[in-house]
Nucleic acid binder design. Sequence first.
DNA 1: ATAAAATAGAGAATATTTTATCGATAAATA
DNA 2: TATTTATCGATAAAATATTCTCTATTTTAT
Lengths: 220, 220
Amino acid sequence: MSDESEKNIDIFGVPEALLRRAPKYYKYVCKQTEAGSEYISSSELALALGLGAVQVRKDLALLSSVPGHSRVGFDAKLLKLDMERFLGYNNMNEAVLVGVGNMGAALLAHKGFVRCGLKIVAAFDVRKTIQGQIIDDKLVLPMSKMASLIDRLKIKLAIIAVPAPAAQSVCNKLVKAGIKGILNLSPTHIDVPNNVVLHDEDIAAALAILAQKVEDKKES
Amino acid sequence: MSDESEKNIDIFGVPEALLRRAPKYYKYVCKQTEAGSEYISSSELALALGLGAVQVRKDLALLSSVPGHSRVGFDAKLLKLDMERFLGYNNMNEAVLVGVGNMGAALLAHKGFVRCGLKIVAAFDVRKTIQGQIIDDKLVLPMSKMASLIDRLKIKLAIIAVPAPAAQSVCNKLVKAGIKGILNLSPTHIDVPNNVVLHDEDIAAALAILAQKVEDKKES
DNA sequence: ATAAAATAGAGAATATTTTATCGATAAATA
DNA sequence: TATTTATCGATAAAATATTCTCTATTTTAT
């Protein structure tokens, strides 16, 4: 019995690799539903994303709440909903942003967050010149307001978009204030305690790896 | 004999997972060398990045050109150089940027590229209002100049930072002009031919996954 | 109706990645 | 100098993830 129930509930056992593929599946499904497709087959997805058809089928088996129809594929709208559920785009999550430089300002104006169930509720910066400015309906606040706001609104997520030298100290303040998940966009290593999840996003590093893959491809 | 030589040369067989960890190793090593450390051990790296020590040793074995010293670790400066070589930060690569909105402008001003051996040599935008502006020493050009510039300078890499509806058409133009690697920052799926490498970078999606991990952690 | 084609799904076989265990080595310490 | 300790590197084992193969289903065409 325990085996059976585990098989259905199985909230764990989600392959890390699938978490990386899922947003791409989702974007493709969005595009196709917007274009009017009613059904999407695993082979179509595989072809579009350059993956093996079997792998896509396996992923969809984990993702989807209903089986696909033989010879037709999966109901596109339903699949989209399942992916949103799987990726947690339904749960509304609030985050704060620290560092309203070029990158930070770009994120404040970024429209992509809402689709993922995310909302940046406040932005902070040390520079007095930018404090008080309103960017995309969000007021830029001084750092002194940060801890109390995070605590009061029970925010768990933060984005660090400050210059490298300031990143660690900002991180420490965030952790102290109760932040549990940090997206680090500064191009430096930062230390976090074990109970905090850290994700580094480094666009330059990503482009460098891409460059290498292009090189490698030439040789093959 | 073929086995032996393959083992040494082995330019392939680089685990994809290592490519994701390597930039983090590199950033940590940078930070420590700047702080004055002469040696870095695999256990130190493991602790700092929250990885298993054995895995780090395996990674370093692939990364490093020299063996580490027993009881001391690896020469920090040398390790840094090896990582730069491994990640291709030595090869200078040029890229173009399309879309000088908030995000595009942030990238033009971004200082992190040089360290990775990258240089954005030109930026393009459809909007006349921004054409001719100089951002961080780079002139924003009209789209009509794009193809010829890419061809003339033999650029192979491009960053797409345009709104979602424009992404696919920009992509097609880039591919036609000879681009072989595309970093897509627009929050939509784009199709590329088989001979072009595509990497999607979606900050919102990354934050959403982070949010889920924070949730999961609470339960455990 | 029947055959053919395309697709889903399940289980086995591979390949990859991670983790565990061992002995060897060199620095630190008593 | 002997002992302890921290580290490396290699091999083996385990866990994960991917790919292969086969069967069943359902639509389309004959």
